[in-house]
Design a protein around this nucleic acid. Structure first.
Lengths: 175, 175
DNA sequence: GCTAGCATGTAAACGGTTACATGATTAG
DNA sequence: CTAATCATGTAACCGTTTACATGCTAGC
């Protein structure tokens, strides 16, 4: 989960850990801060895997910076992950957002479109939220309580907006 | 994360593990299945904590069922968690949804409203997604690439729908 | 005879949170 | 002088995923 944004941000330019932390936090609207205990081990993993090179630079006040650069292998790893996301990166709202944030790095518009299409297919499968155990659609007014009606209403609005955007974007990518 | 839906579903009636698994999965629109390796240890934790009693019943085909019943202490634990959610249960979409699914169990409408208000306050704080590092609002057309524009557009639509619902719901709860 | 569904569990590995630890610079 | 920001790290703990393990019943 953390590795994708690390690779994604480093694709554009070398950065050190602290900068990565800022940017990853911004990706969630400054809502989900990245803990050091998650970030630095993730960097170490990627470095061990050969995706990252590092060199130190004097810090702007404070400790030495470990500036991280993406290797060719790291660049390939990023593109592979963007091209072939795992199913939970398609179905999970938050993970899919992370994917979207870096999808522009995929050089081929057809490959970008394929990812969007997977998400659209997922949002269109009726195996979902809006159907009860027997496959009957659940009406917005049906759930017994105020709160479940709210869940349904918000989920519907979100789905509608996202499907509309995905269709437009797909049209733009494959004119 | 798993403990809340377990307590929530058992609040209504005794269930065994397999049934809990089905219901928790349905809560996510059958998208996020619950693994046994998460469910059974979670049940054990809650039983050890005194939130659950269990007795066995013959299964409908196959193994014996361990039917779980909420204790008084478990009932209190659930209500406490609903009354005073942690901040990440307010800010995280998925977690907040889980909260909503069981919020009807809180007996006092004023307490229900307080939870909705926290979510509304969170959605209204401008420390968010839609503002850049200097606090300036980001326009929907501004981001450089198609995909980031999509993220923004969908996030906006979602936020608008949810805020509208929250305001209506709050009006209904405190007439 | 075989597969899908019912039903429960354990163990290893993984990734994340929280807490601990250090230390320099800059703005109030 | 002191708090915030910059900057990096480790260690204990926790919950989840994944894989392994077992076995019965009902329908094809």
């Amino acid at each position: 989960m953390l590795e994708l944004p690390i690779l994604g941000f480093l694709y554009e330019q070398p950065l050190h850990g602290y900068e990565l932390k800022e940017r990853i936090k911004a990706l969630s609207g400054h809502v989900r801060p990245v803990s050091d205990g998650a970030l630095y081990p993730a960097i170490t993993r990627l470095r061990t895997a050969g995706s990252l090179d590092e060199h130190t630079e004097p810090g702007a006040g404070a400790a030495q910076r470990r500036v991280l650069t993406l290797t060719d292998s790291g660049r390939t790893a990023l593109l592979d992950r963007l091209r072939a996301p795992k199913q939970n990166e398609i179905s999970d709202q938050t993970r899919f957002n992370t994917l979207l944030a870096f999808l522009r790095h995929l050089p081929d518009p057809a490959e970008q479109a394929a990812v969007l299409r997977r998400r659209l297919d997922f949002l269109q499968t009726p195996a979902s939220f809006f159907y009860d155990e027997e496959g009957r659609p659940v009406r917005a007014e049906e759930p017994e309580d105020l709160f479940r009606r709210g869940m349904l209403r918000v989920a519907r609005a979100t789905g509608t907006a996202e499907r509309a955007w995905l269709r437009e974007a797909l049209a733009e990518l494959a004119p």
